[in-house]
């Protein structure tokens, strides 16, 4: 999840978790099934177009609304490699970090990326390179605490270490 390259799909502000993963599918538990409905409320055609590694670019407040972890699970299982947004809903951001989905805060990103541009995203260094324009856009660097979670491969491996030491 540290350095990824893919095609950008650009969306606007306030893409909430109901749009990322509609409520009518909340009873699904199989991650692959959950992945089939990724972004269905915002763009029902996206799943068919996505190639592994593609990147979602969005405006402010991506992932606002419901706490459903299905939103992050659906993006991961639809093979989205990163989400770059101007800001994120807080619970979505935590869920994404916990599960190992790269989420990068980058102000004004929607003004600098066109739909279909090829991007390189360096999550740890916090920048996006637009391979079409050559422009490098610096985003926010992650905190040390989040870095620890990422270096462990997500919160689950981190906790496994703790529980196995206790056991």
């Amino acid at each position: 999840m540290k350095l990824v390259t893919g095609k950008a799909y650009v969306y606007g502000n306030n893409i909430d978790t109901d749009q990322i993963y509609p409520g009518r599918y909340l009873d699904l538990v199989d991650p692959m099934e959950i992945g089939k409905h990724c972004m269905e409320g915002a763009d029902a055609s996206l799943v068919k177009k996505l190639s592994p590694g593609d990147i979602i670019v969005a405006g402010r407040n991506f992932g606002c609304g419901s706490s459903r972890e299905h939103a992050a699970i659906s993006l991961i299982n639809a093979k989205v490699s990163a989400v770059v947004a101007e800001s994120f809903g807080r619970i979505f951001y935590r869920n994404a970090i916990n599960l190992g989905l790269s989420v990068l805060v980058c102000s004004d990103i929607t003004k600098k990326i066109n739909n279909g541009d090829i991007l390189e995203v360096n999550f740890l260094e916090g920048y996006v390179k637009n391979k079409n324009s050559g422009e490098v856009i610096q985003g926010e660097k992650i905190s040390d605490y989040i870095r620890d979670i990422i270096d462990s491969g997500g919160i689950k491996p981190l906790f496994k270490k703790i529980t196995s030491n206790q056991g």
Binding site: S67, R68, R94, N95, N98, Y145, I155, K156, F159, I162
Partner: peptide
Amino acid sequence: TGVGATDMATIMISGQLWFR
């Protein structure tokens, strides 16, 4: 405050959660 499933599972194990 609200969290997702995995954050909640860490609470169920440890009784704690990290907060900024």
